[in-house]
Design a protein around this nucleic acid. Structure first.
Length: 365
DNA sequence: AAAGGGTGCAACCGCACAATC
DNA sequence: CGATTGTGCGGTTGCACCCTT
């Protein structure tokens, strides 16, 4: 037996709220409060709405000091930083952004920030629409919402956008003499953001652009020297002073072969990787629409394989519940890269404390 | 001018947990 | 202490708007 419905579904109105309904709800709550009972509230007001719907409408739109309109760069940084730290805990993230609702932030993440962080551009055909479309959206909002916040964020987006990119151009960076000079890495990061760096474009510019996105989370980092023949893409250390790192599980380092032409990349970590983050990785890899494969020597390899085999077209997908040996999986990759990695594994293993975990994935070219 | 498709946002759904009976 | 009810939350959906063809 399921639980009783919170309201008579047949007799409640659904869909967009009318100005009259808004006015009724707002006036009542401002005068009497919610009374601690959302379910009973619509009857008191004479609204044919579900109590939950009233609550949502109030919290997301009608209550005072709600901030609508474009997100500032600072807000973006906070959202991104918290997302890679705590995941989709929108209510917690919203608590850090006065005036923003969890729904707003969730929508903003899903429609924009995710694309931005994953480094994906919209389909080619959309390029023109994007430049104009954003302007259109902003105009729509401006017309719709007289309480629009100052135009800083909006102006930033529409003002700096170029013809080819969805997002403002990221600042130019002077090429580093070595990756050790990457100044700041998101210390709240998860595997996903670093893997995004590695998997998204495989470019150092992109890597730095993602790091710059988290400028608010700058902190000194320690980057150990890479093993021979490998370049170190990133390294993260937890911040012991932080109080919100409960679920944070960093990837210690990501090693990429030095050959730009190679399609194989190795990731090592001595940390437990939580399933959510692998799911996110799965999303990312699947979103790329490319074949991939994974190998793990860790105990929780089932987590990894589950995460990776959802849409695999490689041989891995045919037996998603079985385990794969290194031999099996490495056979899928470029032989020279595999042999190079094999030679480096002891060094990497030494670099990571036990239990050593590794993941290989490749993107056919 | 119209159809088709992409995008963003408001709103809904269902589950988990807390509070109350 | 179990059952019931209310609330909070994240995921998902529906739709209006706009652009491209």
């Amino acid at each position: 037996m399921g639980r009783a419905p919170c309201c008579d579904k047949a007799n409640v109105k659904k869909g967009p709220w009318s100005p009259e309904e808004d006015a009724k709800l707002k006036a009542y709550i401002e005068q009497h409060g919610t009374g601690g009972n959302w379910i009973a509230l619509p009857q008191k007001i004479g609204l044919k709405r579900c109590g939950k719907s009233c609550r949502l409408r109030w919290l997301n739109y009608l209550r005072p000091n709600i901030k609508h309109g474009a997100f500032s760069e600072e807000e973006e940084s906070i959202i991104c930083g918290l997302y890679v730290t705590i995941g989709s805990r929108w209510s917690i993230i919203a608590a850090q952004l006065p005036g923003r609702t969890d729904n707003d932030i969730k929508n903003y993440w899903n429609t924009r920030l995710k694309k931005k962080l994953f480094g994906r551009q919209p389909k080619e055909r959309s390029a023109g629409r994007i430049a104009n479309g954003l302007k259109g959206e902003a105009t729509k909002r401006n017309q719709k919402e007289s309480s629009m916040v100052n135009g800083a964020g909006n102006g930033t987006i529409s003002g700096t956008i170029n013809n080819n990119q969805y997002w403002p151009q990221l600042p130019d960076f002077a090429p580093p003499s070595s990756l050790h000079e990457i100044p700041h890495i998101p210390h709240h990061g998860s595997p996903s953001d670093l893997l995004t760096c590695v998997g998204g474009q495989f470019s150092e510019d992109h890597l730095r652009s993602v790091f710059s996105t988290f400028g608010n989370f700058q902190n000194p980092i320690h980057i150990p020297p890479p093993p021979p023949s490998l370049s170190l893409r990133g390294d993260m250390l937890t911040d012991p002073s932080s109080t919100i790192l409960g679920s944070f599980q960093p990837v210690n380092s990501i090693y990429c072969d030095n050959s730009q032409s190679s399609n194989t990349h190795f990731i090592s970590t001595n940390q437990e990787v939580v399933p959510n983050e692998w799911n996110e990785l799965q999303y990312f890899v699947n979103d790329l629409g490319k074949d991939e494969a994974a190998y793990s020597n860790q105990q929780s390899s089932d987590v990894l394989l589950e995460a990776f085999c959802g849409n695999c077209s490689s041989q891995a997908s045919s037996t998603p519940e079985s385990s794969y040996s290194w031999t099996d999986m490495s056979s899928l990759a470029d032989p020279s890269t595999v042999s190079m990695y094999e030679a480096c594994r002891p060094v990497i293993q030494q670099d990571c404390s036990e239990p050593f975990r590794e993941l290989m994935y490749f993107v056919p070219q």
